[in-house]
């Protein structure tokens, strides 16, 4: 079997829904193809992740406090000129992004895969907000990321007077670049909502933006 033929069957294979003959042929292929084996492993991880997801997705105020506290503490110089090293400060934001990013991915995968779909039942959303892609689960997940970004943007604005014009320019240009990427990926997701890789990419773009903001708000004063 070719890789593209196997990958179409991986969902059912992972579920044990393939007939014995088909499963045996996939087995043979996987034994000699690290790429497809990795794809299967990734699929199983996502299924496990989706199975572990809570039935109810907490609203932003439940996910956010750790990050908010971290932002509030960011300007304080804990160690050296840098605010306790930006990497340490990223941990909380990264946790939110991972959690919410996983929702985006699992959601998108769930639109293809019934096992994931059941883990992300429509009743999961506590917020009756209009979904960016027609599904409240996706909208809630995306709203978490946007909330994180907006709070960091406010923190960045408060710190601008201590940043050099050059650094501000670099940060602003980068934020704009990522915004454009998010917009383009979002448009692509409207066209191709069943593509989990696009959801992954969208979560990655938000993660990059939030990391950049967290880093920028933790920079030492230049002026």
């Amino acid at each position: 079997m070719r890789c593209d033929e196997v990958r179409v069957l991986l969902d059912d294979y992972a579920d044990g829904a393939l007939a014995a003959g088909g499963a045996a042929r996939v087995d043979d292929h996987l034994a000699g193809c690290p790429g497809c084996a990795a794809e299967l492993e990734g699929l199983r991880r996502l299924l496990a992740l989706a199975a572990d997801l809570p039935r109810e997705i907490a609203p932003s105020r439940d996910l956010w406090p750790t990050v908010a506290a971290d932002i509030a503490g960011a300007p304080k110089v804990v160690h050296g000129w840098f605010s306790g090293s930006w990497r340490r400060g990223l941990a909380a934001a990264a946790a939110v992004v991972v959690a919410v990013g996983s929702l985006l991915i699992a959601y998108s995968l769930g639109r293809q895969h019934s096992g994931v779909r059941s883990a992300l039942a429509p009743t999961a959303s506590p917020l009756a907000v209009p979904a960016s892609l027609g599904d409240p689960t996706f909208a809630v997940a995306e709203a978490e990321l946007i909330d994180a970004r907006d709070q960091l943007l406010a923190a960045l604005d408060a710190r601008r007077s201590s940043m050099s014009p050059d650094t501000q320019q670099v940060v602003d240009d980068s934020l704009q670049l990522i915004d454009e990427a998010i917009a383009r990926i979002s448009v692509a997701l409207v066209d191709d909502p069943l593509n989990p890789k696009l959801a992954n990419r969208l979560a990655g773009a938000y993660r990059t933006q939030i990391e950049l903001l967290q880093r920028a708000t933790a920079l030492p004063a230049e002026i």
């Binding site: 690290p34 790429g35 692509a188 066209d191 191709d192 593509n195 890789k197 696009l198």
Partner: peptide, 18 residues
Amino acid sequence: RASKYTPEKELSFSTGSG
């Protein structure tokens, strides 16, 4: 091309024993 809807490109391959 990874999708007919987007310009996404993908490439996965292994060389040697990988």
